[in-house]
Design a protein around this nucleic acid. Structure first.
Lengths: 192, 192
DNA sequence: CTTTCTTGAGACATTAATGTCTCACATGGG
DNA sequence: CCCATGTGAGACATTAATGTCTCAAGAAAG
C-alpha cells in the first residue's frame, strides 16, 4: 500500500505545521518560508511538499482561521438568548484564535483588488446578522450599522491581540476588555 | 548661493512627495519605490535623492503621522471641558490622517523587537492621560485601562479607515461611528 | 533483509525590489 | 551667453526570498 496519490504521514503533520506557522506569523508577519519551516521543526523542502508556496500557506491559514471562527460562532449559539450575551460568548470562544485573526485581518488589506475568500463574506454575514438581531430586539442602537459593528469587532480583536503580545494588556483581561468596550458601545443606553 | 549642503528646490517638493506616498501606501501598503515615485510624479532616482531608501521613507512617514497626530491633539484641546467632548474633538481632528495612521499602525507590528519611535510613546502617554482624566472625573468607567482605550482608539481608527476605503462605511459617518462606539464603551453608563 | 517512501540538506536558477552610478537635458541665475 | 544644478532615464550590481531539483540517509512495512 501507500502508493496512493497522497502520502500517509504528511496528513498527520500538516495540522501541526499549520499551527506552528500561525503562531509564528502572528508574532512576525513577514517571517520567511525558512523561518516557518524551522519553527515547525521541518526543513524548507518538506514545507514546500506540504504547501506549494507562500501563497498556498497563507491561503491554508486563511481556511484555518475561517474554520476556527465558524467553530467559535457555532459554539457561541448566536441565535440563542440576548444578542449581547451571544456576542460575549462569541468573543470568548474566538479568543484563542485572536492572534491568527489579527494576522489575517491585516493580511487581507493587501489583497487590494483581488477577490477575497468567500468564507470571510459568509462569516461577515453571520456576524452581521447577530448584530442585526440585537438591533431588531432593541438591545443595540441602530445608528451604528451591523457592517461597522462587525468591522469594529475584527479591529478590536486585532488590537487586543497586539496589546496582549506587547504586554500592554494582561492576557486574562482580553475578553473582558473587548466585550465591554464593544458592547458598551453597541448596547443601547437606558434613557434615564 | 545655493552651494549649501541642502538644495533649494527639493525642500519645496518633499512635502508633496511625502503626502503622495502616504496616500498611495494607505491604499497599497506594499507599493514599490517605483510606484511611490510615479505616484508623486517624479522618477525613482529623484525619490532616492529625497529619501535614502524605503526605510528612510517610512521613517519620514512616521514623523509625518506623529506630527499630524500631535497637531490634532493640540487642536482638540484635550485638557478642556468634559473628557468625552475632548475625545470627540480628537477623533474629528485626526480623521484626515486616519489612512496614514492605519498604515503606520500595522507597519509598527512588524518592528517586533526593534525600538519604536519615541514619538509614539509620547503620543500614547498624552492620549492615555486624556482617558485617565476622564476616569478621574467620573466620566469614564475605570475597569477599562487607559492603555487599552488608547490601543482601541488606534484599532478603531484603522478599522474605520479600511471600512471606508472598501466602501463598507460611508466616509461622512467615519467620525460618528468611531466616536460613538468608543465613547459608548468608555463612557460610564448612568445607573438608572 | 529488502523494498519503499519521506525527509533533510544543499545546490541552483529565478525573480523582484533595491541601491548606485552615469549621462544627457532643461532650466534658472549670473 | 555660460555655468551650475536638479532631473529623468537607463544601465548595472546586489540582495533576499522563492521555487525547483537531486541525492543520500533513515524509518517503516513487507
Amino acid at each position: 500500500m501507500s502508493h496512493m496519490g497522497y502520502p500517509r504521514l504528511m496528513a498527520v503533520d500538516r495540522d501541526h505545521v499549520l499551527r506552528s506557522a500561525a503562531a509564528l506569523l502572528t508574532r512576525k508577519s513577514t517571517a520567511t518560508m525558512d523561518e516557518v519551516a524551522r519553527a515547525a521543526g521541518i526543513s524548507r523542502a518538506t514545507l514546500h511538499r506540504h504547501f506549494a508556496g507562500r501563497d498556498a500557506l497563507v491561503r491554508a491559514l486563511e481556511s484555518l482561521g475561517i474554520a476556527e471562527c465558524e467553530a467559535a460562532l457555532a459554539a457561541a449559539r448566536p441565535d440563542e438568548g440576548p444578542a449581547s450575551e451571544a456576542v460575549r460568548r462569541l468573543v470568548h470562544e474566538i479568543e484563542p484564535a485572536a492572534g491568527l485573526l489579527a494576522f489575517l485581518y491585516t493580511e487581507n488589506q493587501l489583497f487590494e483588488g483581488e477577490e477575497q475568500n468567500e468564507g470571510w463574506a459568509r462569516l461577515d454575514a453571520r456576524i452581521g446578522a447577530l448584530f442585526r438581531r440585537g438591533q431588531a430586539s432593541g438591545e443595540f442602537r441602530i445608528d451604528l450599522t451591523p457592517a461597522w459593528l462587525t468591522e469594529a469587532l475584527y479591529g478590536l480583536m486585532a488590537s487586543g491581540a497586539w496589546a496582549v503580545a506587547e504586554g500592554r494588556v494582561a492576557r486574562k483581561d482580553f475578553t473582558h476588555m473587548i466585550v465591554e468596550l464593544l458592547l458598551g458601545g453597541a448596547l443601547r443606553r437606558e434613557e434615564s
